[in-house]
Amino acid sequence: MSQTADPDATEGRSRPSRTSDLVAGVLGLAAAALLVAAPQLVDRSGPDPFYKGPLIFPLIALAITVAGALPALVRLATAAGRSWFIDGNGVPLRAIALFALACFYAPAIAWAGLDAATFVFMLGGLLITNPRRPLRALVTAGAATVVLHLAFISFLDIWFPEPTAWSWLSGD
């Protein structure tokens, strides 16, 4: 998926790309579904009348969301052939890989503790984003681990759960 130029832009137009409209459309349709389902998703068993109740504002919010998505939905339906161009940067493989790693960071803190999880996340993240500098990655990961430990454990005294791995190793 290598894109180099936006056909719409070269023709002097500055309309949002179809990708942008698609995102707006998906959000709009999701909001519409929530709008329909809202009475079931909000507990209305209290004694308050509708205007004081918990449902009125979510309905307004979702209606605004749907209204905002309407122009994009109309464009999606009527302007076939327009470009799906975003910015020419292609598929963000490194960002996806880093995000996937970040998804394991919080569970890793619970499993192995802040220090070990931070070191592994930083090292892994730096190697994913720039595999040519392993030594720099190692040093930076170590430094970041020390900084986060000092900031959150020594300075802020934040409570972190006892690592599950320690319990396993100690046989508790």
Binding site: A24, G28, T65, G68, A69, A72
Partner: peptide
């Protein structure tokens, strides 16, 4: 404008 309105509504929700 459409995107801004959509995001404001989403933020409200």
């Amino acid at each position: 404008l459409g995107q801004a309105v959509l995001l404001i509504g989403l933020g409200f929700w």
